[in-house]
Nucleic acid binder design. Sequence first.
DNA 1: ACTATTTCCTGGATGC
DNA 2: TGCATCCAGGAAATAG
Length: 270
Amino acid sequence: MPELPEVETIARGLQQRITGDVIESIWLGSKPEPLKSSASEIAGALQARKIAAVRRSGKHIVFDLESAGNKKRNAQWIVHLGMTGSLVVCTPDSDREKHTHAVLQLASGRELRFVDPRRFGRLSVIERFAAPGAEPLEISFEDFAKLFRSRKTPIKSALLNQGLLSGVGNIYADEALFRAAIRPRRRAASLTRDDLRKLHQALKRVLKEAIRHGGSSISNYVDSNGDEGSFQIKHRVYGREGKPCFVCKTPIKRIVIAGRSSHYCPKCQK
DNA sequence: ACTATTTCCTGGATGC
DNA sequence: TGCATCCAGGAAATAG
């Protein structure tokens, strides 16, 4: 399930491999497509464009597109991977996976394919994309603290709110809260300045460490090379219900907050 | 104006 | 073995 570290890993891989390549043609699958823009709008925006850069913004992958000769406006292709989306670079002769929704033929002879079994992913084209929330790795402590001031919602829900912070999902919210020793149900506004400091640090650290490990591979996440991440072996609470806390041996609890599983140590987290 | 819950979607795991 | 049911969750939609 691609969150910030997984999306960052994918974007870096694509940046390295397909920057400078030109999109020669686009195939968009039939049926209800996971598109936010219309199919013709997307195809038109991608056709004959050079991929000038690939980067991450929140959980979105941003492709900066340049038109080669003419003076057409430059655009951005935005890919959100949802739960199970992946972008793979491969040769045209490799088998087209089930649930392939888009294929871009590149001038280099390779293909970039968008595959998404659960169809939560979204493709769109926009002039200049801006994620609504702040980047967790860039936000200052003062701005971070301000986000949660006077919010009655549980801190876990606030962390998942993409309008506040962009890129934090269920895994890293739980892991950051464990490392900050804060219970997920705590009201955001009840966090002390010290709590907020710990949370800010913990979130940045866990995200950076996860990026170093190429993200977490839980179900079927792979990067653009088809490689799995390894951060799942570093998870301390996520997916560990009933197993002993690595710090105090207390069984990890799982509760549901905002319809999402939340894992925490009832002894270490207050 | 906020916050909480439901919905979308498929495959893998589980249970009888 | 087979079939039904549950569960995973990002974000939009809907409900409270």
